[in-house]
């Protein structure tokens, strides 16, 4: 049985009233959803709240899930919407959210050469700062594509847009990052 088939079976079992199936789904996805929420919200208690609310929504609304998208995409869509609502409630703007969590600050880029390591850490730091400065849609597209390995079709479903629009968000984000890096390098050279 493939992982997807296994998930589909769990969804069906839960719809038929098997509570243990929900637990299984929860355990399979709790860490990825926590990771997604942390990358968007950059705060443990906020991420904790969003994870719980996301799975509450899943529990209460799984009967409305018709399987037109994958369960994973549906779950990510709920999680992203929960993050947005959470930010809205806190009167924050996603563009001001710091992706750079303490863990990311402590990030150790795998390298044996000390100088290379420093350059790598700086580069990662800068990259995180630049991603932070992207628009909400572009940033979410980057997070879903890079950190969660979602296909553009899945990103489109999660963002409620077409596949080509999702691809445009991602493409624009890369171009923008490229431009930002160019400016950054020019600034350093001056």
């Amino acid at each position: 049985m493939t992982p997807n088939e296994n998930i589909n079976n769990l969804v069906l079992e839960f719809k038929e009233g098997n509570e243990k199936a929900f637990n299984e789904l929860f355990l399979q996805f709790q860490k990825p959803i926590y990771g997604l929420a942390m990358r968007i919200l950059a705060n443990h208690s906020d991420a904790d709240e969003v994870v719980q609310k996301t799975f509450m929504q899943v529990y209460l609304n799984l009967n409305t899930f018709r399987g037109e998208s994958s369960f994973k995409t549906w779950l990510y869509k709920i999680a992203i919407n929960q993050c947005k609502d959470h930010l809205k409630n806190k009167e924050q703007q996603i563009s001001k959210i710091d992706l750079e969590t303490p863990a990311m600050k402590k990030l150790k880029v795998q390298s044996s050469h000390p100088l290379k390591k420093i350059i790598g850490e700086q580069h990662t730091q800068i990259l995180l700062e630049k991603i932070n400065a992207l628009s909400q849609q572009q940033k979410t597209a980057i997070i879903l594509r890079v950190f969660d390995d979602l296909a553009f079709k899945e990103i489109a479903e999660a963002l409620d847009c077409t596949e080509s629009t999702a691809k445009v968000h991602y493409h624009q984000a890369i171009l923008k990052l490229k431009g930002m890096f160019k400016d950054h390098t020019r600034g350093e050279l001056r």
Binding site: R39, H44, D48, A103, M104, V109, Q110, G120, F147
Partner: peptide
């Protein structure tokens, strides 16, 4: 960006 993927989020 692929390298960035290795960056872990804070482990609770």
């Amino acid at each position: 960006l692929q390298e960035l993927k290795k960056a872990p989020v804070e482990d609770p």
